[in-house]
Amino acid sequence: MSKVEELVDLAKFYFLNKNFEEAIQKYVEALKLTPKDARIYYNLGIVYEAMNIVDKAKENFRLALELDETLIAAKKHLHRLVGG
């Protein structure tokens, strides 16, 4: 397992346990190694949305979509947060 995968798995584990700060930290570490991974930005957006930190959630969903516009889940979440 690569270092990135390891970090992402850990982040998901922390997220599932509602340890949101740790999850964010692991995703950010993973992004340092692979800064153009849309899925990590999406997952990071999900953590922020779960914490009700809407600005950060939107920012990460937007970054995910800039890198991969086919990420339907990111589109759905962004649309919901932006409203309209």
Partner: peptide, 14 residues
């Protein structure tokens, strides 16, 4: 309440 979960494709969701 938002309950964290993992989707079928392995990505997170709540």
């Amino acid at each position: 309440r938002k309950t964290p979960t993992i989707r079928e494709d392995g990505e997170t969701e709540f």
